[in-house]
Design a protein around this nucleic acid. Structure first.
Lengths: 343, 343
DNA sequence: CTTGGCACTCATATCCTGAGAGTGCCAGAC
DNA sequence: GTCTGGCACTCTCAGGATATGAGTGCCAAG
């Protein structure tokens, strides 16, 4: 699939023109815009070659050319020249991401920044807290039979849950239970704590101190429920931006897409794939392997906390998107989010 | 605007037919469906009367009749017969709302239940916590210069915030600061606490104990930031359902609507109005007074905690919605949410 | 008061036509 | 061999004509 320089130049300008205008590009316009002194007829010959290579196609006989999926792939792999983000935008992102410290709020901000700047949908996966370490667990009495359990991880993530109590506990009992628990399990990863809890429960609980028992039982309930929640692991924002995409003025395509966002599962799976690679990853059209993303592109980048990748952020839009602008945006946001999370 | 029984029956069936079918209703179909032994010609005479009263109109000369806004108003005020929700749905709602205890999660559940069962958009306002009482404030050290502040209200709402520290604090200092704060301000409403904090800071802080000072300063920062956040006060779900509304197959109307959901302000204002009234409230079309809701109806009901109204939930959809089904759904959800919040 | 009948009005679907855009290919020029 | 102008061809799209069908309004008679 090696193209001579001329074909490459022509192909590149074709893609750019199409991305800008959304209209199939004819030989005439291409001749004017490409900066080469060639007649439309010559261009047509080149186009025929490109079509044979599968890089472009025409919607119908008399309609100019449009990049194919393969064409976009070539474009983003070796032709697109990503310009660095302009200073103003950069500062804005930085400001937004450093003004908050709460990790959950940070992810939400990142997602909405992505959607805002790209005018597409922004997506951020929420890292599973299992590998985070337990900093502190706290029991707070809400009413006779309801106790609020607050779990704080060393990343500053706060998770809270109200659990039912089997009997009435005094404030001091709860404090004591908390102290015991933190002394025993503080600093362990949530995964390990969960595991330890299960085995601790299995050991004969008769010979445990009452407070111990209380603490373990309540913590178990907490972890149980947290698991059940299956937690919303994806922050999506700016879906509404996709209403503006002209090629989707047909509502039925939008419906599919929106329900895909709602289901989350497939999308999550796709983004999980890109957790393992480092750096920007781009899925064009069918490459994602999911039907509703048929004519979408997904540009994703992993973000990290303290040097290890914990999640992915991405932008979802039509295949005809401005890769040139979106790629650096995703890149920068991932970097800045990572450093904001490190704090 | 008093109608004789015959006109009333005809009008009612017209509205129902139109709500079901979405097509303007002609005299012929109406004659067949109304159960009265009348010829189409007679129906036409009645329709002319209804049109004069402003209850129905026809999109064009030969297109049957459609209820006007005024018509819908009459329909919901005195004609619609709300059937009680079926048992299966009732139990499902009850299950969903009693399985969680966390108030924030409850509101989210209520919103998604509304949208799921009505196939429209569900909206729930998040009560301002200002009137809630402070149960407990807690300071947790995250790193040298960052402290996590956790605020728990007596309703079980947990709010957390990471604030910067001017110096390094020891764990025991933080515990002590927390204890002091809770002893002093525990049980007061957040409003009052905020107010007290300001005046306390104004008093000469020189003669305060160091711990006191620490606690106050950090709490002040916490309240400050919480205020800045202006907190997302509206939980919207199922917007995507509105893509299915056939009369909005045109994307531009959807755009307006979606951006209205995003802005939230107007919607919030509208729902605030209905906090003050008790029971179901229905805004049909322009009655809401907001442009993007021009051809929407909003059905809202306040919900309460411990006997006093704290928020509103609502369903937003096209004026042509099944009031018969939606009204009881909103009603029931509001009731069940209230009782779930009471615990 | 009700009804059948009839003329009338629109919206919608279908078909046709012409204009315009763009292609493919060929033959000739460089 | 490469490029170019020219020409026939194809296909979309907009506009106009036509027909069809649904539904109304009104009138005159029961």
């Amino acid at each position: 699939m090696s193209l001579n320089t001329r074909a490459e130049v022509l192909f590149k300008t074709l893609v750019q023109l199409y991305i800008d205008g959304g209209q199939p590009v004819g030989s005439r316009t291409l001749a004017r815009q490409a900066g080469l002194e060639l007649s439309p007829a010559t261009i047509r010959n080149v186009m025929a070659d490109l079509e044979e290579l599968g890089l472009v196609e025409s919607p119908h006989t008399s309609a100019g050319r449009v990049p194919t999926q393969l064409g976009y792939r070539l474009f983003v792999d070796s032709l697109v020249k990503v310009s660095p983000l302009d200073q103003k935008a950069l500062h804005m992102i930085e400001d937004k991401l450093t003004s908050k410290h709460d990790p959950q709020a940070l992810l939400a901000s990142a997602s909405s920044l992505l959607s805002e700047f790209t005018h597409l949908a922004g997506v951020v996966t929420v890292p599973k807290p299992d590998h985070a370490a337990l900093r502190q667990l706290e029991f707070v009495r809400m009413s006779k039979d309801r106790i609020l359990v607050i779990l704080v991880t060393n990343e500053g993530r706060v998770q809270n849950q109200i659990i039912g109590a089997d009997r009435e506990y005094s404030d001091s009992e709860l404090v004591e239970a908390g102290n015991f628990f933190n002394a025993t399990y503080g600093g362990m990863s949530l995964d390990d704590v969960r595991h330890e809890l299960l085995t601790a429960m299995e050991r004969d609980s008769r010979d445990m101190h009452r407070i111990t028992q209380t603490a373990l039982e309540m913590a178990r309930q907490m972890f149980q429920q947290a698991e059940d929640d299956a937690e919303e692991e994806l922050v999506v924002s700016g879906e509404a931006n996709l209403l503006e995409v002209p090629e989707w003025s047909d509502v039925s395509k939008l419906r599919d897409l929106f329900s895909a966002f709602k289901r989350k599962r497939d999308l999550l799976h796709l983004l999980d794939r890109s957790v393992r690679t480092s750096g920007i990853q781009i899925f064009i059209g069918d490459e994602s392997g999911y039907r509703p993303l048929h004519d979408c592109s997904v540009i994703s980048a992993p973000y990290e906390v303290d040097g290890s990748v914990v999640g992915t952020l991405a932008v979802v839009g039509p295949t005809r998107m401005s890769y040139e602008r979106v790629i650096p945006m995703v890149d920068v946001t991932a970097r800045l989010l990572s450093s904001a999370l490190r704090g």
